[in-house]
């Protein structure tokens, strides 16, 4: 690995100040460190955010769940409060990577990285999340821009993510047999007033809200309503693990599983 300067700032301001076009913020490092090792990314400065106390923790207040950016997947998975408020989100965290990855990887890191097959982005979209940074608040829908691309600007740090508590929700994923990332993942969330969000991950350059599925389930929250939705394989990812056609079909299969489990 190429050498760099390591920093461990104590607050967000200091962290932001240290950043430049040649720096990277480090949270869990689950993607950053391997890509640095493989020479896919090199940085002059690595700025570790884990020393910033206020970035970690889970808070449930009424219809809002707020999770600090450096909260590890294992903490999200275990949180009793969260299990009560949004059990599907805790279950999603329990399904990320393996126990060691969950002990290190963070929600903020996952969202900032925006891997097309990551789990959390679908939760953010389905649960009308607001991503709070040191400068502003961004709606999930506009936050995820494309493959590994978000609306975060240079020096901008995610501080926390706020999720809206749904009345019912469930996340189902078809894992890639090798990496265990999502080949496709479907997050179904139903809110008061019967509005339903269906967010998909793994299928395109990044997670997205599937309008057709959301509309159909908002009208009639049943597996049969999914049958009538046409999901085209156009624009859907295709790789050695799954063709676009298979993925498109699995979106429906897994959407049904999610609805059944709601």
């Amino acid at each position: 690995m190429k050498t760099f300067d390591y920093h461990s700032p104590k607050d967000v301001k200091e962290a932001s100040k240290l950043s430049s076009s040649k720096s990277v913020f480090l949270a869990g490092g689950m993607t950053t460190i391997p890509s640095m090792k493989l020479g896919l990314a090199t940085y002059k400065d690595v700025i570790n955010l884990k020393g910033i106390k206020k970035l970690s923790g889970i808070k449930v207040s009424g219809k809002i769940v707020k999770i600090g950016a450096t909260t590890q997947h294992a903490e999200v998975a275990k949180s009793k409060e969260l299990k009560k408020a949004i059990p599907s989100l805790a279950a999603l965290a329990e399904g990320i990577g393996d126990p060691q990855v969950r002990n290190r990887g963070t929600i903020g890191g996952s969202i900032a990285n925006n891997d097309p097959a990551a789990d959390y982005p679908s939760a953010c979209i389905a649960l009308n999340a607001v991503i709070h940074t040191n400068n502003r608040s961004i709606n999930a829908e506009t936050f995820f821009k494309g493959m590994y691309e978000t609306s975060l600007k240079s020096g901008e740090i995610i501080e926390s993510i706020e999720f809206e508590v749904p009345s019912k929700s469930n996340y189902q994923k078809l894992p890639n047999p090798a990496s265990r990332y999502a080949v496709i993942g479907v997050y179904v969330a139903r809110f008061k007033g019967d509005n339903v969000n269906v967010a998909i991950t793994g299928a395109k350059s990044c997670a997205y809200l599937d309008k057709n599925l959301s509309d159909a389930l908002s009208k009639d929250f049943s597996t049969s309503s999914i049958n009538n939705v046409n999901i085209s394989s156009k624009g859907i990812n295709s790789d050695i693990h799954a063709s676009a056609n298979y993925r498109a079909n699995m979106i429906k299969v897994y959407a049904k599983k999610a609805v059944e489990a709601c």
Partner: peptide, 11 residues
Amino acid sequence: LITASYMDYTM
């Protein structure tokens, strides 16, 4: 080789 890591070669 497109299966050159444990991300793609299914152990």
